[in-house]
């Protein structure tokens, strides 16, 4: 904690550099569509908005705090056992999140089933810990964690929005497609609820993003 305060005094809390950490993961360095991290759990929880939002929040919290803790400990962790140390810190945080979810939003926690536990092996965490927190001060690491969590959440929410809208005609559980549509023959697309469409939706998101930002295109 003391170290964190010192870092704060040296530079303003929201300097341009820190703000960039928050903004970059949203588009140019998006963890899901550019860094290809954390897809494992990203797709399975996007059938509806509600679990997707809860999942995004949980991942953001875990990423931010594990970045903070590892960054604060970074000089005392022997590099040979750092993976184990990181896993233990992350696992402890995930246990806390899991218990909280079970206590306050039990139905969502049931829906997320094993995917809360799988936050531990979510590549975003290990990726950010290795790439950023091990080499930077606690405060920027914390912000980096929040930024990446939000970037991840953004994709999750976009995918969940389309899947819920076209799959069951709802938005966060509220029916939004007018009754009249169904009367003239509109049918919810059942395929959107099934797993394959999550993959294709992400594929399309990547397509749109890369047509807009040329520097992300692969050869």
């Amino acid at each position: 904690m003391r170290e964190q305060k010192k870092a704060k005094e040296k530079e303003p809390m929201f300097s341009a550099k820190v703000l960039k950490l928050l903004k970059n993961p949203l588009n140019l360095e998006n963890p899901v569509t550019v860094q290809v991290l954390g897809i494992c759990s990203a797709l399975a929880v996007t059938v509806q908005m509600k679990p997707a939002i809860v999942m995004a929040l949980s991942v953001t919290v875990v990423t931010a705090f594990s970045n903070l803790i590892i960054s604060a400990l970074r000089n005392t962790i022997p590099s040979r056992i750092r993976i184990i140390v990181q896993l233990v810190v992350v696992a402890a945080l995930v246990i806390i999140v899991d218990q909280l979810l079970k206590a306050y939003v039990y139905d969502v926690s049931k829906k997320l089933s094993v995917f809360v536990g799988l936050i531990i092996t979510n590549c975003i965490l290990m990726g950010r810990l290795e790439a950023y927190a091990m080499a930077n001060k606690p405060w920027p690491s914390f912000v980096d964690g929040i930024g990446n969590g939000i970037g991840y959440g953004l994709i999750l929410v976009i995918v969940a929005f389309f899947r819920e809208l076209f799959g069951s005609g709802k938005f966060i559980g509220i029916p939004v497609i007018p009754k009249g549509f169904y009367e003239i023959g509109y049918v919810d697309n059942g395929l959107m609820i099934l797993p394959p469409m999550a993959l294709i939706t992400i594929g399309i998101i990547i397509w749109v993003q890369r047509s807009r930002t040329k520097e992300l295109q692969e050869k």
């Binding site: 594929g203 397509w207 692969e218």
Partner: peptide
């Protein structure tokens, strides 16, 4: 071009699924 690499892999996986 924008679909090359990652994008097309996702869509292939979706079709395989």
């Amino acid at each position: 071009k924008p679909l090359r690499g990652l994008g097309i892999s996702f869509i292939i996986t979706g079709l395989m699924a």
